[in-house]
Amino acid sequence: MDNCIDLSLLDGVLDEYASVKGSLITILQHTQDIYGYLPKEAIERISERTGIAT
């Protein structure tokens, strides 16, 4: 498994949706579109930015 995930690819998605209530599924779908799967590192970043616990 590659531990070098470029989390900057998520910045645009998180900038747009992190503060929108009810947008977690949308964020996760965009994340999967970007990486082809949901990397643990990305989920942790999403949690930090949205305030939703993992």
Rank of each mutant, 00 (worst) to 15 (best):
Y35H: 11
D15Y: 05
L9W: 07
P39G: 09
T54G: 05
H30V: 06
A53E: 15
Q32P: 06
Y17I: 05
L24C: 03
A18F: 01
A18L: 04
T50Y: 02
V20C: 10
A18W: 00
T31R: 02
L28H: 03
E48C: 11
I5R: 09
I25D: 08
I5E: 13
L38M: 13
L24I: 11
M1K: 08
G51A: 05
P39K: 03
S47F: 02
A18G: 03
G51I: 06
D11C: 15
G22H: 04
I43A: 06
L38H: 06
E44Y: 06
T50G: 04
E48S: 11
I43K: 02
A42Y: 01
A42G: 08
T50E: 04
I46Q: 01
G22D: 06
G12E: 04
G36W: 07
L38F: 04
I25K: 10
D2M: 13
Q32E: 15
A18Y: 00
T54S: 09
S19T: 10
S8H: 09
E48Q: 14
S8W: 04
L7E: 08
D6H: 08
I43W: 00
I46Y: 01
A42R: 02
I27C: 00
I27P: 00
Q29V: 14
E44F: 07
Y37C: 14
T54D: 09
C4N: 08
V20F: 05
T31E: 12
D15N: 15
L7R: 11
E44N: 09
L14F: 02
Q29Y: 10
D33M: 07
M1E: 12
A18C: 03
G22C: 09
L38I: 15
G12M: 06
I27R: 00
Q32D: 09
L24S: 03
Q32A: 13
I46K: 01
L28P: 01
Y17G: 03
T50W: 02
T54M: 06
T50R: 02
T50I: 13
I43E: 00
E48G: 06
S47G: 07
L14G: 00
D15M: 15
N3Y: 12
D15C: 08
C4R: 07
L7K: 09
I27N: 00
D15F: 10
D6P: 01
D6E: 09
T50P: 01
T31N: 08
L14I: 03
G36R: 05
S23Q: 12
L9C: 13
Q32T: 10
A18I: 03
T31H: 03
L24G: 02
V20I: 12
Q29N: 13
L28G: 07
Y37W: 13
V20G: 04
L9V: 06
S23K: 05
D11M: 10
Y37G: 12
L14M: 05
Q29T: 14
G51D: 05
I34K: 02
L24P: 00
D33Y: 13
R49Q: 13
L28K: 11
E41H: 12
G12W: 03
S23F: 02
E48K: 10
E41V: 11
Y17A: 04
Y37I: 13
A53M: 14
E41M: 15
H30A: 08
Y17F: 11
T26L: 14
R45C: 15
I25E: 12
T54Q: 07
R45W: 11
S19Q: 09
E48R: 07
P39N: 05
L28Q: 11
I46M: 04
G36C: 05
A18K: 01
G51Q: 04
